[in-house]
Design a protein around this nucleic acid. Sequence first.
RNA 1: GGCGCUAUCGUCUAACGGUUAGGACAGAGCCCUCUCAAGGCUUAAAUACGGGUUCGAUUCCCGUUAGCGCUACCA
Length: 485
Amino acid sequence: MLRVRFAPSPTGFLHIGSARTFIFNWLYARRNGGAMILRIDDTDVERNTEASLTSIYEGLRWLDLGWDEEYRQSERLALHRQVADAIFQKGLAYRDFTPAHTGESEKSGAQGTWLFNADMRAMPREESERRAAAGEPFALRFRVPRDTQHTVRFADAVYGDQAKSTADIEDFALVRSDGMPTYHLASCADDADLRISHIIRGQDHLTNTFKHVLIFEAAGATPPQFAHLPLLVAPDGTKLSKRRHGPVVSVTTYRDAGFLADAFANFIVLLGWSPKNDREQMTRQELIDAFSLEGINRSNAVVNFTEEDPFDPKAVWLNAEHIRTMPAEELSERLLPVVRAAGHSIEPLKMLQITRLIQERIRLLNDALTVADFFFVEDLAPYDSAELIPKKGDAALALAVLERASGVLATAEFSHDSLDAALRAAAVEQGIKPGQMFEPIRVAVCGRKTAPPLFGTLEALGRETCLRRIEQALGKLKLQSEPRQ
RNA sequence: GGCGCUAUCGUCUAACGGUUAGGACAGAGCCCUCUCAAGGCUUAAAUACGGGUUCGAUUCCCGUUAGCGCUACCA
């Protein structure tokens, strides 16, 4: 049975790199009929926060991919201690009574080449037992083989065969002096116990894997398959971090800006993975069908954000593609809460009508608020009356056009085709180009020069609103041409 | 410092040793058009550097350089 896991530690909001790791795991599980496990790695009591846990669930819920089993490491401490003890009993770990360090400059003083503390490593069993029994705190360290020239090996599905001499691996801690397991121990103990078959995680763990292989072997377990993912980095090349890059790397930032979860997943999965057939826009199912570990790259991928724009242009483009290709009904349903959250009241039927007009004009859901604002408000925001004057025309022409339009709209049937025909006919009668006719009307009803197609807009706005806004425009123009004495 | 990993257009990427080094986003231009979009067409833009191996290297090997990661009783 194929089993993969996503194991975030609740020490900050869910960032996009973590979300990506989750998605890769999920895709792999779904592609191969395996199980997806969510495990909260909360052994660092000091740094865990409730807010972070909330953020993780919030982000994962938005992604809407789900998982099959869920565990919390802090509830599995007995298992971790049991594994640590078993390793200790085999003589593969020893007690280190060195006081816990507050800073971190001490032992790595000699050029950071610290491997182990000889006194502690070689301490006689009796002394170790005696001091432990006396209640002296100690950390449990892995006894990395030193005498024989030992090389630790494992095959990584992405980076290939990996090997490292034990001479370059320090005696890392398994259990802290407060009795809590370290990440390495807890992670491996759980992975073994939960029968994880494939560990797919960030490349920042590639080097740690040698230690993990050592732990698995010491615990008498077969190490799972490993697949390390290239890291997501900022434009300056450094690893994405919550600390340095702030909310631009938070999943909820994407959600709040109006990204579709599927579009986000589509984008993020293309960072470090390729279907190798030039396909870019893909649905969730298409991603599942196309996914394989072989398509994963080895070099880090830049998330191309800037200070002005927190989102990679490709992410925005993909979102627009997903928006364009989804059924208008579905898009409308997603737009409704966005519009209502902005304080507008709008009926579902009207929203659908508007959606058809803006579907290929918005890139993020929130764009609806700016692209279609004039549909949602009673009164237009103030605009310069000069905007009403069409190209190659003057105020007098604008006045004439709007008066004529007012007459036409008062009687015409309010449907796209009728409005089209009537307004074009009016332009001919006026001896002007259609564009010159439409421009003043568009500004009068929308309050600006760029807007969705005119006839559909008029239709959605309704006769009453159109006429009222044209009257108001007329008023502005008259005020302008007849300045008060 | 030690150890590990990586290196194709600005960005994401494609290319079982033989291609005019392909695609996408972003940029520029043109077309379409009631504005804006969308769409179509065109354009500019890359194999880090130096050695090998080979008839032939983006591709394989070595070195250099650069970047990243790990080097905690964080994960």
